[in-house]
Amino acid sequence: MIVAQRKPFAEIKEMLQGYNKVLNVGCGTCVSVCLTGGEKEVAVLNTELEMARRLDDDPIDIQGHTIERQCDREYLAELDSIIEEGKFDALMSMACGVGIQFLAERYPLIPTFPAVDTSGLAVNQTVGWYEERCRSCSQCVLGFTGGICPITMCAKRLLNGPCGGTNKGSCEISNDQPCAWFRIWERLSGQGRLDSIKKINTTRGWKDQAPRNLMQPGYKKPEKMVK
């Protein structure tokens, strides 16, 4: 799933300076699961903002509404009436970078601000602990790396690792960060597949250097987009 981390409170407060009627929109999918931007997190942030602005003698009317998914027009539609009636002077989104952009696009006349920093595609290790596993590089190498991604996990994105900084199975950047290539070597050894990394992996083209679009076969862009 997509994980995100809430921005520092001071940064959020600074962004909303000068806006007095704000709707904070949560997202009920990925960012809810990683405890960053669901209904409860919207409530906590709104309470914080209300208290802080009151202390500053600059009260804010901040409301919250969490929809199922911000990256889906179908769910965004339910905000239309709320936003029309509310006359908000700003929107805030606790969804990932994808969701907030769809929200901002739907209400282009209202300034929209992010309350979270999107950090990547991660697995849920235990409640509250999420580990990045994919950089969505558009060119998956997991087939020859034993199912462990060096683009994500190796701090140098090596394709012919491990480098000389491997430290008892950890990465040179931190003892808490496992060395991707050590793990790859370990797993492929166990599978008797070390030949897979004995040959040189040649330079690759980076496919993520320009915006990517996916158009499935058999589908085409509609002539006119319906909101």
Binding site: K156, R157, L158, L159, N160, T202, T203, W206
Partner: peptide, 14 residues
Amino acid sequence: MGVFDIDSTQLIAM
């Protein structure tokens, strides 16, 4: 930003 466009083995080959 760490570039790491290519790695040391690939640099040698290049």
